[in-house]
C-alpha cells in the first residue's frame, strides 16, 4: 500500500491533480475517524479532516518520500485537531449529533431522558458515553489514546506523529488509561 501511495505522491508532485484524489480516498476514513474522536463533533471533524488533506496537498513537496506517508498525514491532522481544541470555546449545538451516536441529537436526548431505565444502557448510549469520556480527557492524553486505540498505531509511530519522546508517549498513555478507568469502571 505504501508503494502505491508513494507512486501517487510522485504523480501529484508532477502536477497530477487526480492522483491526489486517490490518496484522499485511501486515507479519508482513518483521518476522519481520528478527527471525530478528537473533536467529538461531525461538523468540526469533517472541517478539520478536509483541512488536513488540503494542507497535505499544498505542502506535498515537504513530505519526505522515504518516510511513511500515513505518519506525516496523521501528524498534520493531529496538530490541526489540537489547535482546534485549544482555540475552542465550549459550544453545544442542540441539533448537532451527539458524539459517538448516529442520528441522535440533543433534542432526542432531552426527550429520552428519564424514559429509559438507567440499567438499560443501549449500545448507542454506551458508545456516546465512551466518546464523552474520551472527550473529557485533557488534550494531551486524548491524542495518545485516540492514536493508540482508535487508529491502532504503534507507540513508535505515535511518538513520531506527536514529535515527542517514546517515554513521554508511554507516560501519557498510562495516565490516559487510568483516567478513563476511573470513569468507565462502573459500566
Amino acid at each position: 500500500m505504501e508503494d502505491i501511495v508513494k507512486k501517487r505522491i510522485k504523480e501529484v508532485r508532477k502536477g497530477d491533480h487526480n492522483a491526489f484524489g486517490e490518496i484522499v480516498e485511501l486515507y479519508k476514513s482513518k483521518v476522519y475517524q481520528l478527527c471525530y474522536r478528537m473533536l467529538g463533533n461531525s461538523h468540526e471533524a469533517e472541517d478539520i479532516a478536509q483541512e488536513a488533506f488540503i494542507r497535505a496537498y499544498v505542502n506535498i513537496d515537504r513530505y519526505n518520500i522515504d518516510r511513511k506517508f500515513s505518519t506525516w498525514l496523521y501528524r498534520i491532522a493531529t496538530n490541526l485537531c489540537i489547535d482546534r481544541i485549544r482555540k475552542k470555546k465550549p459550544d453545544y449545538y442542540l441539533d448537532a449529533e451527539i458524539a459517538g451516536t448516529e442520528g441522535m441529537n440533543m433534542y432526542s436526548q432531552i426527550a429520552a431522558e428519564g424514559m429509559l431505565p438507567e440499567d438499560e444502557v443501549t449500545s448507542m448510549e454506551l458508545q456516546a458515553l465512551i466518546q464523552r469520556e474520551i472527550l473529557n480527557l485533557p488534550e494531551k492524553y486524548r491524542s495518545v489514546i485516540v492514536l493508540k486505540y482508535i487508529e491502532e498505531l504503534s507507540l513508535n509511530e505515535i511518538s513520531e506523529i506527536l514529535d515527542m519522546p517514546l517515554g513521554t508517549v508511554k507516560t501519557r498513555i498510562h495516565r490516559g488509561r487510568e483516567a478513563l478507568r476511573k470513569q468507565l469502571r462502573h459500566i
Partner: peptide, 11 residues
C-alpha cells in the same frame, strides 16, 4: 470499551 467504539462513517 475504547476499542469497541464503532467505526464512524466518513461523510
Amino acid at each position: 470499551l475504547v476499542q469497541s467504539t464503532s467505526h464512524i462513517q466518513t461523510p
